[in-house]
Design a protein around this nucleic acid. Structure first.
Length: 493
RNA sequence: GGCCCCGUCGCCAAGUGGUAAGGCAGAGGUCUGCAAAACCUCCAUCACCAGUUCGAAUCUGGUCGGGGCCUCCA
């Protein structure tokens, strides 16, 4: 099955046919850099990270552009509050953004342009819109005359009359129509500004994305993404600017990700439930955050809560436990060339088949509008098959099993890679989780090891009462003991 | 007020016309000194009502409940 993408413009899933065979050009609205990123930014960027990864996995040559908007009212205001320049402020938060995205395991886009590096293109685009009659200058400002662009509101599916009912012209604005929006703003004292045919000024909000996307991807490109909240006005205005200027269709597929709620409430600063990525990372592993976000479809709302994050951690651990068990098995039983199996049991047959079908099932799910939730569900089936083969362990008579374990583990890593998951060394990751879990408790790893040794001696003397007492004591502190033929290990509940 | 989305097992979450993936939790079993982990088995007819259809969680209408956008926002 081929890739299908839900297109906001048409309101349905459409077969994905790139403008140029084998090549995909995509643009995703990045951030306005005036503050630390919150968990909603994390979701948007992770979602488009896997879109990028999956397109590459399908074999496309992908050009991925994600911008920084580094000139804007909010940046100016925040910089003034702190008594630093807009440039200093934006550089600080570009750095923070880069750090956050790297921690979350995001691939670098092909290009990460900054609005301030495209002022020339922005001015050029604005002039073109004025020349074509889509825009007008007024006292140093330039506004887009929305009624001149026929298809306006085609993306957000609203109508002008109703929108106008609520629209107001703010004091100081020179708009002819309340719905018009600024392409260029005349400089006020203390604001960063650039020369232009209309005098010194700076870009309005939406124009930078039109300028950067056409510069780097051309007038028409395949995919444009961002959060739902950008549909109106940001993306609507981008369409008006880009299509007005070029006279060509702007974007073929519009993709928008859903919101993040916090404990069933809308995430908002006024409710005080706004979490930055940095705050979340203090308590949760970055891969757990990614796993959590990808466990729901990108267009659905997700509820960010400790319970849901804890569940994601348990789920991710299951993958790493299985990968670790497979690694250990393969270490102890080297795989021979051309595995054989004189008698394959039904149970083994089933596991073999599952692993064989895994990649197709995974790809099918991902091809259905990037259904990561379904894809992860299939991966869990792979885990069960792997665990079954590892657990049945008749490797002396069935070396084929070992081959399948090897292939299955490699496949899990490969497909996980499409989601940006399972890239760590299982033993290391699991150990890291244990260490992090222990951080807040009064127990140390040494304490636990000591008690395990004491219990081992008790068990050797068949003093099970004492052995169980130690185990219960540790269990009371959240430490679970796992006995095996090779000895006792522990994990956190 | 206008536009739009959602309501699937205790919880999370796929499925958008052919008789409900997966994970967590739970029950039973194998294993174990006993456990844990792992594996095996079991566990929902899809908010409600009325329609369309041979057939609907999936389509239509309505009811109830929740949410979003319309100003900055991923």
């Amino acid at each position: 099955m081929d890739l299908r993408i839900y297109n906001t413009l048409s309101g349905g899933k459409e077969p994905f046919v790139p403008l140029e065979p084998g090549r995909v050009r995509m643009y995703v609205c990045g951030v306005t850099v005036y503050d630390y990123c919150h968990i909603g930014h994390a979701r948007a960027n992770i979602v488009f990270d896997i879109v990028f990864r999956h397109l590459k996995y399908l074999g496309y040559d992908v050009t991925y552009v994600r911008n920084y908007t580094d000139v804007d009212d909010k940046i100016i205001n925040r910089a003034n509050e702190r008594g630093i320049s807009s440039k200093q402020l934006s550089e600080e938060f570009i750095k923070a953004f880069d750090e956050d995205m790297a921690t979350l395991g995001l691939l670098k886009p092909t290009h990460e342009p900054k609005a301030t590096e495209y002022i020339g293109e922005i001015v050029g685009l604005t002039e073109k819109l004025v020349d074509k009659g889509y825009a007008y200058a007024a006292q140093g400002d330039v506004y887009y005359a929305v009624e001149k662009f026929g298809p306006y509101l085609k993306l957000s599916k609203r109508n002008m009359e109703e929108m106008q009912a609520g629209a107001r012209i703010a004091p100081g604005e020179q708009k002819r129509n309340p719905m018009d929006f600024a392409l260029w703003k005349a400089a006020k004292p203390g604001e960063p500004s650039w020369d232009s045919p209309w005098g010194p000024g700076r870009p309005g909000w939406h124009i930078e994305c039109s300028a950067m996307s056409s510069s780097l991807l051309g007038d028409t490109f395949d995919i444009h993404g961002g959060g739902r909240d950008l549909i109106f006005p940001h993306h609507e205005n981008e369409i008006a600017q880009s299509e007005g200027a070029s006279g060509k269709s702007f974007v073929k597929y519009w993709m928008h990700n859903g919101f993040v709620n916090i404990n069933q409430e809308k995430m908002s600063k006024s409710l005080g439930n706004f979490f930055t990525i940095r705050e979340i990372l203090e308590r949760f592993d970055p891969e757990v955050i990614r796993f959590f976000i990808l466990s729901a479809h990108y267009r659905s709302p997700i509820d960010f809560s400790d319970q849901n994050l804890d569940e994601a951690k348990v789920g991710l651990s299951r993958f790493y436990e299985a990968l670790k068990a497979a690694d250990v098995t393969l270490r102890e039983h080297p795989v021979e060339e051309g595995g054989t199996c004189p008698q394959i049991s039904d149970s083994e047959r089933e596991a073999f088949d599952c692993i064989e079908a895994l990649e197709d099932r995974f790809t099918e799910a991902m091809n259905d509008d990037f259904n990561t939730a379904a894809a992860i569900g299939h991966l869990f089936d792979g885990v069960r098959s792997l665990n079954r083969l590892v657990g049945e362990g008749r490797f002396d008579t069935c070396s084929l099993s070992l081959r399948v374990i090897q292939d299955g583990a490699a496949l899990l890593r490969k497909l996980g890679g499409v989601l940006g998951l399972f890239g760590s060394e299982p033993e290391q990751w699991l150990a890291g989780q244990k260490q992090a879990g222990l951080a807040g408790s009064e127990l140390s790893a040494e304490d636990i090891e000591g008690l395990i040794e004491e219990r081992r001696l008790a068990r050797a003397q068949r003093d099970f009462a004492r052995a169980d007492q130690i185990r219960d004591e540790l269990a009371g502190k959240g430490v679970i003991l796992l006995d095996s033929a090779e000895g006792t290990t522990w994990k956190l509940k």
